[in-house]
Nucleic acid binder design. Structure first.
Length: 863
RNA sequence: GCGGGGGUGGCGGAAUUGGUAGACGCAAGGGACUUAAAAUCCCUUUUCCCUUCCGGGAAGUGAGGGUUCGAUUCCCUCCCUCCGCACCA
């Protein structure tokens, strides 16, 4: 039925694909749409053509599309399919626009699930991991995403993780990696430590029902706090990031400006510093609170008249303190220490209490309590009958006779010695200044963010490249000796001990400094280290003299578009920014922010909740590929909702997507005869002078086609509402169906039909690339659509000639009139008033005003 | 409590700068084709009301108010819902 490439070659046109050895390329279209056959055919062709291989091409505009790399859990899920379908539509569009597109993928392949599976089945984690990677790679290839597979990065490979170790050593050199004993969050399920970012509502981020417990352990930390200010400051560059993500990061960093004030413990003559953002309220301070873990507590107990009693009381507070809490609202609790603190502003002595809501890690671990102007202090002092003194009045208003809650707003100072009468704003300034002048305090900035604890007592991660020597202490492994390899033979027990500690040949080593006997560090790194820089490695995954190659990074960076789930808003996306800043400081890169634009897609949900094994509502993508083909699954993913919103999976919805592709296939295969010799005018702007006069029917068809092309082009540039792009593509197919008679009877010339079908196929190439390539071949072209330049729409053809304008009388729609696009306002007015229906509504009334909005509507106002 | 989304037919969703509300798809109902079924094609489908088939009217985008010739869109008050943060001094 269709042309053969043989025929066309006979006419003298070159066609490299006709000789393709496979034998399926260049054959006529089948009558029926067979996605399995078509998708296999084109995936093979793409691979053989090295269609997605991207190389540095100086002078050519590049575009780096990045999607979050998957953890190899064994099977891809619908969230991946959605993420990668969005990325692929963009990558393909940018390729067709002529950009040199880098579109890589890799595996976030260290981590707990593989280790847990390994313990269960008594097989090495590497075995699971590599088997799963193979399986998921096949699944992703089945999806047909335009990845440059030569650039695949696997984070658990020594060639990759050695550079994690290298970064660690660089940070250690600069004092950014350090070890300290600290209270850590421990997940009894994971049998390891969690970063603060990984604790959600007091529970583990992976085990929502498992409360985190606390342990004191020697841990390695990365000093992200040194970068807190820059992480905030550089957000100015992130203009193309979702506001939501920036806000979440801002809250996480939690900058607050305040004053540190030196109180002193009167009985012991010890200094006691507190941090406050409201130094203007300090004359209302009636108590000082300590956290139960405050470093001075020991001394207080020792000096106490009743040390045992105080010790047990403090122990009680510790147990009820905010650390252990899982539920949201904790009763205020505390105990008086019997000691007193002297307020340096007025010399007053106030009692020192230990309170359960005071955090050790924030500020100085001690706070001045101003019950009249802080709600928490108010609640505490009310409970324990401590004095409350008002020192701030509302700027315009009387104080309440009886306080029912703290007045926490700014106001005017009273009862505040020399500062009485000042506004809060002025007082904060003056009082901080005076403290600095007198040396008992200073203005400071506090951050909520804490250093990033990266030690994990697990096996399947990057070994931390440090050595403990009895003579030299803690010694870094020299960079020349990297990687410190993860031993392959190991028995995993899951007891909570670092598994590496039981591997004698790993632990026993010599000191790099003195050559004496030494032990290796047996903790491994948090896997978020791996994902903090993997997207640099893609640009030159084989380079082995440095983590990155400057030439490659300079060409490909920044990442033009990063696409992934919102769940990484503060974890991965803040670590990644931190790493880049460190890389800048050590001279590896010249910029501060790696990602120019971020897009966070919505989740795929079913029956109202996120797909999960426990809920039993998981839809397996590979089963869908088998049933409908990858193109249908992609099309449905993009059609069912705009990409930033959650997407409801519907079994009948995907049927609709499948029906549509079948319909497109049928429609095109029906018309696509004899196209070989015909040249369309697509993309030729302006149309050549000799181009044909179109009939009304031809104009209608071309108008619709170019309007759809216009919409899709504009949408791809910014808005990404693929659902509307696909809806319009459906409208175009509907239009073709409606014009079936005109086409069959030859009233639409072949070049017009061909142009329309070309537009249809090239748009489809973004969302359903396999069928698009098949149809592209079917209508007389050769090769992949990816190599076809994205066609420019013709604004003249897309323009409407006649409009249907709604006519309103007093804002109510009464009729519609058809007018030429260029009709004058006078003409339109006359038309409208002359209309029979309109006349009914204005008869007997006075026309007050006639509003004509060009191209939009007419509104006649009557009285 | 604070911060940020969102609320449109039976369902997913359109309406991009204030200008025809419900595009497109799903589901449902009816019809054609078929021995039959599947597939496909055609028609109907916001609600209510009037009407003898033609056709016509009113209401309608969470609720109430405001601005405007005109509001899903802008402003105010409130309700619901989702997400993030949450004793951070």
């Amino acid at each position: 039925m269709l042309l053969c490439y043989g025929e066309r070659n006979a006419s003298g046109r070159p066609d490299s694909q006709a000789a393709h050895r496979d034998g399926t390329i260049g054959r006529p279209m089948d009558t029926n749409y067979d996605p399995q056959k078509i998708e296999a055919k084109w995936q093979k062709f793409w691979e053989e053509q090295k269609l997605f291989d991207a190389d540095i091409a100086p002078g050519r505009r590049k575009y780096y599309v990045l999607e979050m790399l998957p953890y190899p859990s064994g099977d891809i899920h619908m969230g991946h399919v959605r993420n990668y379908s969005i990325g692929d539509a963009l990558a393909r569009y940018m390729s067709m626009k002529g950009f040199n597109v880098l579109h890589p993928i890799g595996w976030d392949s260290f981590g707990l699930p593989a280790e847990n599976a390994a313990i269960k089945h008594q097989r090495p984690p590497a075995e699971f991991t590599f088997a799963y990677i193979d399986r998921m790679r096949r699944q992703l290839k089945r999806l047909g995403v335009s990845y440059d597979w030569r650039r695949e990065v696997t984070t658990c490979a020594p060639e990759y993780y050695r550079w994690n170790q290298w970064f660690f050593l660089k940070m250690y050199e600069r004092g950014l990696a350090y070890r300290k004993k600290s209270r850590v969050n421990w997940c009894p399920q994971c049998e390891t430590v969690l970063a603060n970012e990984q604790v959600v509502d007091g529970c583990c981020w992976r085990h929502e029902d498992t409360p985190v417990v606390e342990k004191d352990l020697e841990q390695w930390f990365l000093k992200i706090t040194d970068y807190a200010e820059r992480l905030l400051e550089d957000m100015k560059e992130l203009v193309r990031w979702p506001e939501r993500v920036l806000t979440m990061q801002q809250n996480w960093i939690g900058k607050s400006k305040g004053t540190e004030v030196g109180f002193s413990i009167d009985e012991l003559g010890l200094p006691l510093r507190v941090f406050t953002t409201r130094v203007d309220t300090i004359f209302g301070c009636t108590v000082v609170f300590l956290a139960a873990e405050h470093p001075l507590i020991g001394k207080l107990i020792a000096a106490s008249k009743e040390p045992e009693k105080l010790r047990s009381e403090v122990e009680r507070i510790k147990n009820s303190s905010v650390h252990a809490r899982v539920e949201v609202n904790l009763e205020k609790d505390g105990v008086a220490t019997g000691f007193h603190a002297r307020n340096p502003y007025n010399g007053e002595l106030v009692p020192i209490w230990v309170a359960n809501f005071v955090l050790t890690e924030y500020g100085t671990g001690a706070v001045m309590a101003v019950p009249a102007h802080d709600q928490r202090d108010f609640e505490f002092c009310t409970t324990f009958n401590l004095p409350i003194r008002t020192v701030i009045l509302p700027k315009d208003g009387e104080p309440k006779a009886k306080l029912e809650a703290a007045f926490t707003e700014f106001g005017k100072l009273v009862n505040s010695g020399p500062y009485t009468g000042l506004t809060s704003e002025r007082a904060i300034e003056r009082m901080t200044h005076d403290a600095e002048a007198d040396g008992f305090g200073k203005g400071t900035i506090q951050y909520r963010i804490k250093d990033w604890g990266i030690s994990r007592q697990r096996y399947w991660g990057t070994p931390i490249p440090m050595v403990y020597c009895d003579a030299c202490g803690v010694v870094p492994v020299p960079a020349s000796e990297l990687p410190v390899l993860l031993p392959a033979d190991i028995k995993l027990t899951g007891t909570g001990q670092s598994p590496l500690a039981s591997v004698g040949e790993f632990v026993t080593t010599t000191c790099p400094k003195c050559g004496g006997p030494a032990r290796r560090e047996t903790d491994t790194m948090d896997t978020f280290v791996d994902s903090s820089w993997y997207f640099y490695r893609y640009t030159d995954p084989k380079t082995d003299s440095a983590p990155i190659s400057s030439e490659a990074v300079n060409y490909w960076f920044p990442v033009d578009q990063y696409i992934g789930g919102i769940e990484h808003a503060i974890l991965h996306l803040i670590y990644m920014r931190f790493f880049t800043k460190v890389m800048k400081d050590i001279g590896l890169v010249s910029f501060s922010e790696p990602v120019a634009r971020l897009f966070t897609q919505g989740m795929v949900i079913k029956d109202g909740s996120k797909m999960s094994k426990s809920k039993g509502n998981v839809v397996d993508p590979t089963a869908m590929f088998e049933k409908y083909g990858a193109d249908t699954v992609r099309l449905y993913m993009l059609f069912a909702a705009p990409p930033e919103k959650d997407l409801d999976w519907s079994d009948t919805g995907i049927e609709g997507a499948s029906r549509f592709l079948n319909r497109v296939y049928r429609t095109i295969s029906k018309y696509a005869e004899n196209f070989g010799a015909v040249e369309s005018l697509l993309g030729k702007l302006p149309r050549p002078a000799a181009s044909p006069e179109y009939t009304a029917e031809e104009r209608n068809l071309l108008r619709k086609a170019h309007q759809v092309l216009r919409h899709v082009t504009k949408d791809m540039e910014d808005r990404w509402h693929f659902n509307t792009d696909i809806a319009l593509t459906m409208e175009l197919v509907n239009e073709l169906t409606e014009m079936d008679a005109a086409i069959s009877e030859g009233r639409i010339r072949t070049e017009v039909l061909k142009e329309t079908l070309e537009i249809l196929v090239l748009i489809l190439a973004l969302f359903a690339p396999h069928i698009a390539d098949e149809l592209w071949e079917g209508i007389g072209h050769s090769g992949a659509t990816l190599r076809v330049a994205w066609p420019a729409y013709d604004p003249v053809l897309a323009a409407e000639e006649e409009l249907e304008l709604p006519v309103q009388v007093n804002g109510k729609l009464r009729t519609r009139i058809r007018v030429a696009v260029d009709a004058s306002e006078d003409d339109i007015r006359q038309f409208a008033v002359a209309d029979e229906k309109v006349a009914q509504y204005i008869d007997g009334h006075q026309v007050v005003r006639v509003i004509i909005v060009p191209q939009k509507l007419i509104n006649i106002v009557v009285k």
